Each structure stands twice: as C-alpha cells, then as structure tokens.
Lab assay of single mutants.
Amino acid sequence: MASQGTKRSYEQMETDGERQNATEIRASVGKMIDGIGRFYIQMCTELKLSDYEGRLIQNSLTIERMVLSAFDERRNKYLEEHPSAGKDPKKTGGPIYKRVDRKWMRELVLYDKEEIRRIWRQANNGDDATAGLTHMMIWHSNLNDTTYQRTRALVRTGMDPRMCSLMQGSTLPRRSGAAGAAVKGVGTMVMELIRMIKRGINDRNFWRGENGRKTRSAYERMCNILKGKFQTAAQRAMMDQVRESRNPGNAEIEDLIFLARSALILRGSVAHKSCLPACVYGPAVASGYDFEKEGYSLVGIDPFKLLQNSQVYSLIRPNENPAHKSQLVWMACNSAAFEDLRVLSFIRGTKVSPRGKLSTRGVQIASNENMDAMESSTLELRSRYWAIRTRSGGNTNQQRASAGQISVQPAFSVQRNLPFDKPTIMAAFTGNTEGRTSDMRAEIIRMMEGAKPEEMSFQGRGVFELSDERAANPIVPSFDMSNEGSYFFGDNAEEYDN
C-alpha cells in the first residue's frame, strides 16, 4: 500500500510504541512475548500442572481467558453494579484439565481477579502490559475465525453469508486497541457500523446529549479505520460520505453494504499476525530463551520457528480426527482463516481442507461434555516452508469459486491468482447506482469489472525454506488448481455463540 510509510507498523501498534527502528520493534515485541511466557509459567505453578498438562491447549485457553477477564475493567465495573446470582464479580476462573488415573478430569478453578492481575503485572515488570493482553485477544479471535462461520451475524446486519472472507476479527472485544483495529476485516468494521446506525434509528437519543457526542466521535473513528483499509480513492470518498452524514440511517447502511461487497474484489488491507497460545510461549521462556534479547516478529519467520520446536497437546472428542484438529489450530496460529487453501497447503506441506470436510468441533470443551471418553493427542503445528504475512489485500483475480465463501483475504505475501467468483459478486451490483453516491458507485463498479483474471497478485513473492531466515531465496510455489480455494466452501461450520 502506498501510504505504508505514514502508518505505524503493526509491531508498533502491538507494543504501543512511538516510531521505533526494526531492532527496537523486535525487542519490544519480544518483551511482550516474554511477559506472556513468564505469566503462563507462574500460572502453571499456581495450578500445580504437570509439564504435559501445561502444554494442553484447553488449559492455555482457560488461563488466557482468566487474565483477560481480570483486566476487563468495563465488564468488571458492570458486574459490580449489576450483581447477578451466583456470579462473584471479583473472581474469575474456568475449567482446568488434569490427568488422573490414566483419565482426563475437569476441575473448575476460581481465583481472585486481583490475584491474577498481581501475577500478570509481576510477570511483566510491574506494568499492565496491555500489548500482551491484546495479543491474547487476537489469538482467540484468530481461533474463532478458523472455527466458526459468522453466517447468522452477517444475515442479521443485512449482509450476504458468502462475504465471510471479510469477517476477520469479528469476535475481537471493543477494547483491543490499535492492534485489534489493524486485524479487523472490512466486513467486521461494516458490521460494527451498521449495528451502531441501527441503534440510532431505533433509539432517538442515541446521537443526542453528552453521551451522543461520545457516540458520534466513536462512529467517526470507526469510519476512519474502515476508510484506511480501502485502497481505492472511490471507496475512500464513499467512506467520507458515510462519516460526514448528519443523521446516519438506511442510506448509510446501503452504502456500507455496497462497500463491503466491493471489497470482495477491490480488497481492503487487513493486517495478519501470528499470535500463538500462551502454552507455546511459556515452555520456550522456561527453556531459557530470551525473546527480548533475541527479538521477535509476528509477521516473519519467528512464529514458524517457534511452532517448529513446540509440543502442544489437545483434548480430542471420541469421533474427532486429531489431524483435522491440528489443521484448525495451525490455521489459527498463522492467522489464515480466509487465505486461499492452495497457498496454505503449499506452505504447510500437507493438504489443507475446507472447514466442512474437517471432523472436528471447536477447541474448547463445553462444561456439560462427558470427560470419560476424552483422549488427548499432539497437535501437528509444523510447516514445510515459511512466508511473510501481508497486510495488503493483493490485486484481484477471477477463479472458480464456491457456493460458500466467494473470495479470499490473503494472509501471506505469496504470488498467486486470487480466487473470487466474479459473476456471483457482480450480480449483486445491478441497477442500484442512484442517489448521492452514484458517481462513486459507478466508478467502483467500473474498477471491479476491469479486474483481470490473468493478473498475478504479489508478483514474484515466494515462500522460503525454514533454514532461509533472511528470506534470501524465494520459492514461487505451484498450486494444484483442481483443489478448492475457499475454506468455508459450501460450508456447515458451527455458528459462533458468545
């Protein structure tokens, strides 16, 4: 993207840094990872977990959730003011799984939030270390993106479920800051804005008074975040219109849905970061690795190297396929839920299948599930090659597409044709070009129609051997075009429920 120079890199967003050079960025990201790792080690000690239990991804998720809940100030305040039966607002906890007599047992633990905050700050040299908290939120978000298709949420806001490739980060909490905003897809931002506008339509006082002023500035800020994701002048001009509207209503909703559809071809720039579970960072720190000293990046080879040398386990339900569970977590670790499966298959070195073909449910185990038949197995999170994460949407291309997802959002900077089903997408653009945004709409449609099938995206960008740390010898991959490109292809993934 041309304006790259004016933006802070995501590592800076990730670490609240002012302008830093590459070495400083690597050190501050490393410091953040160190903090998460030290916190995780301490929690495993508190909970008396064995090494194996500490490497269980379900335990990692519970521990991450506990610290996120302990620092969720708004919710904590709300819980104190609106006490609900049987919930102690000062405590947080969740299921911890232990191996007892050759069987997995679930144990519900409860801790004072104050105590968890103390352990977290102690692991982070006394700081609140917001960057580390956001990092864990993005890992949870990436896992949700890989596990669930947001059909219901899309339909509720009037969008087409086939636009799911635009929904990265749709389950990120509001408090995820600049680093969170960077990884949100165009569809996620559109959905947040539509929800806001709908509230304004239904509630006369939404934009009024002292609160209304705050609401208005939040609305304009979200519009600017979305505008910054678009790469064409016409899309940005249309966002200006939406932002400046005196009284946002149905016309703005129409414009936003139009823009979301246009992003299936004229893709937005959305950041991709490899955020790993805390149970990967903990053992690495415990083994003596100093992330701050060595430096770390979320968008280069580092996460690949770390996963190459990590042992992570997962509980497996009786009829689940461990290899499929591994694929789910591998995609989440690489922030690749909406990437082209052919690119992923090449990088991973084994075939990556669409969601609907995987015999696996989510990673988390519900409290009512029976533990008797639970097994555990090693997650295979290694890769054959590594590639640089991208934040450009890439230019655009036609490809055989599917009944489910009709476009992709690249996660890796790797040369390819970008699949999208042009006739299906263009069919949504018939007729409606009147109104105050008509010239911009016409211009956007013209650009979409001009998108050429034979153009290559990320020209000359390749993948790298894991021994090639400096990215000196790019390998331009070859793809098996007979395979499906979309992950949520004609899909039956479970729906995400809060």
Rank of each mutant, 00 (worst) to 15 (best):
A233F: 03
Q235K: 13
I316H: 09
I36V: 14
R118M: 07
A373K: 07
Y281L: 09
N397E: 00
G200S: 08
K31R: 15
N21G: 01
E73Y: 00
Y111T: 15
M374Q: 13
I116W: 06
T215S: 15
L259N: 08
V352Q: 05
D34Q: 12
L344N: 08
I25D: 00
M374H: 05
K293T: 06
L56D: 03
F464K: 00
A286H: 10
E484L: 00
Y148M: 09
I96P: 06
D421I: 11
L110H: 08
S287H: 08
Q241K: 09
V343L: 15
T437V: 01
L358I: 13
G268W: 03
R441V: 04
M43W: 03
M222A: 15
V270H: 12
A153D: 05
M105D: 12
R106L: 11
F429V: 00
K31Y: 00
C223T: 05
E53H: 06
G450N: 13
D160A: 01
W330E: 02
S326D: 10
V242I: 11
F458Y: 15
L418W: 00
A472V: 10
Q4D: 00
S486C: 06
E465P: 00
A428T: 15
K452D: 00
Q122E: 04
A260I: 05
N144C: 11
A85K: 06
R246Y: 14
E252V: 08
T147L: 04
F429I: 06
E64G: 14
I475R: 00
I365K: 05
R195T: 11
R19K: 05
S407R: 11
V329G: 06
H140D: 11
R342Y: 02
P474A: 14
I425R: 00
R470I: 00
S262F: 05
V352D: 04
R208M: 08
P322E: 03
V29F: 07
N321L: 06
V183K: 05
I33N: 06
Y496L: 08
T350D: 14
T23C: 11
E465Q: 01
V67Y: 11
Q405A: 11
D145G: 12
K48D: 09
M331C: 11
S176I: 10
N498V: 08
R121C: 14
E80R: 02
K98M: 11
S176F: 07
G362I: 04
G393K: 08
C223E: 10
I138F: 07
M191C: 05
L166H: 10
E24Q: 15
H324N: 11
V100D: 03
G30L: 01
T360I: 04
G450R: 03
S170L: 07
M66Y: 07
M189T: 10
G30H: 00
I301K: 10
R174P: 05
A284P: 13
R75H: 09
R361T: 06
E455P: 08
N224G: 02
D421T: 13
A70E: 04
D290G: 09
V155R: 08
Y289I: 14
P474T: 14
G435Q: 05
N142A: 06
T23H: 15
V299K: 08
E11W: 13
N483V: 01
Y289N: 08
D255L: 05
A123T: 11
G177V: 12
W120P: 07
L166M: 15
D372N: 14
A442D: 01
Y148E: 02
L328A: 05
H324K: 01
Q399E: 03
A181Y: 10
I406M: 11
R118E: 13
G288I: 11
G462T: 06
L47D: 12
L61Y: 04
D16L: 00
Q399V: 15
K7I: 01
G200P: 05
M189P: 05
A336G: 15
G187H: 02
R174M: 10
K214T: 02
L381H: 08
G300R: 05
P318S: 15
S367K: 09
Y487E: 02
P318Q: 12
S359C: 11
A153G: 09
L344F: 09
G394K: 05
V414K: 04
D128C: 04
R204E: 06
A336V: 01
M456G: 15
A278E: 04
I406N: 13
G462R: 15
F258D: 03
L266D: 07
L133N: 02
I265L: 15
A263N: 14
N473C: 00
A263W: 05
V183E: 07
A131Q: 12
K325V: 06
T15F: 11
R391S: 03
R174S: 02
L133T: 03
G17C: 15
N432L: 15
G158F: 05
R261G: 09
I197N: 07
G200I: 08
N321Y: 11
D240H: 13
A234I: 13
G394W: 12
E434L: 08
Q149E: 04
R121I: 08
L47S: 09
I33Q: 00
E192F: 09
A181V: 02
N205D: 07
T232N: 13
G249T: 05
S467F: 11
S245Q: 07
T45N: 13
R102S: 13
T92G: 13
R470C: 02
L143I: 15
Y40M: 04
I25V: 15
I388N: 07
M196L: 09
V183C: 09
V280K: 10
N124L: 04
R470E: 00
D439K: 01
K273T: 06
R342M: 14
R156H: 09
Y111W: 07
G209N: 14
G288C: 13
E375S: 06
K184I: 05
M163W: 12
E454N: 02
R382F: 05
F304P: 06
S335C: 15
A123I: 07
G180K: 08
S314L: 02
C279R: 03
L49Q: 09
D88I: 10
D16R: 13
A428M: 06
S141I: 10
A337H: 03
G54H: 14
A260P: 08
R441T: 04
Y111I: 10
V329N: 06
G228Q: 06
P322W: 08
D302N: 15
V155I: 13
S335P: 03
E18L: 14
G282Y: 12
R261E: 10
I347A: 14
V352L: 14
S402G: 02
S310K: 00
T188M: 03
R317E: 02
S217M: 14
R208D: 02
E244P: 06
N76E: 14
M481K: 12
E81A: 02
A373S: 15
P95V: 12
T151R: 07
S50N: 08
P303S: 11
S438Y: 00
R216N: 07
G169P: 04
S245G: 15
N321C: 03
S486I: 11
S314D: 05
K305M: 08
H135Q: 13
S274C: 10
A179K: 13
T433C: 09
Q235N: 03
N397K: 15
E292C: 04
A182M: 08
H272L: 05
R156M: 04
R99N: 10
D160E: 14
A123E: 07
Q4S: 14
N211L: 15
G177C: 07
D127A: 14
R118A: 11
E18S: 08
A251L: 14
K305R: 15
M159F: 02
M238R: 02
P303C: 14
Q399G: 09
A234L: 03
F338N: 11
E380K: 09
R26L: 07
G394F: 04
I63S: 05
M137P: 09
R156L: 01
I63Y: 04
W330A: 06
C279Y: 12
M136G: 07
M440Y: 15
P419V: 14
A411S: 15
I138P: 12
E80P: 00
E434Y: 04
F346E: 11
G300Y: 06
A336I: 04
S486G: 02
A153C: 08
T171Y: 03
A129Q: 11
A131F: 00
N395K: 12
D290W: 05
S376P: 14
W104N: 04
M447S: 13
E73N: 05
D480H: 11
Q42S: 07
E449W: 00
C275D: 01
M481H: 05
D127L: 15
N498H: 10
N59T: 13
V414H: 00
G177L: 08
L47M: 11
W120F: 13
N142K: 11
T130F: 04
R195D: 05
Y496W: 14
L143D: 01
Q231Y: 01
R38Y: 07
Q12C: 10
R106A: 10
E192G: 10
W330M: 09
L344C: 06
N309V: 02
E114N: 14
A237L: 04
M331K: 03
P318Y: 11
L264R: 01
N247F: 06
Q415Y: 00
F489P: 01
M105E: 08
E320W: 09
W207K: 01
N124A: 08
R461I: 00
A401G: 04
L315F: 12
I225F: 12
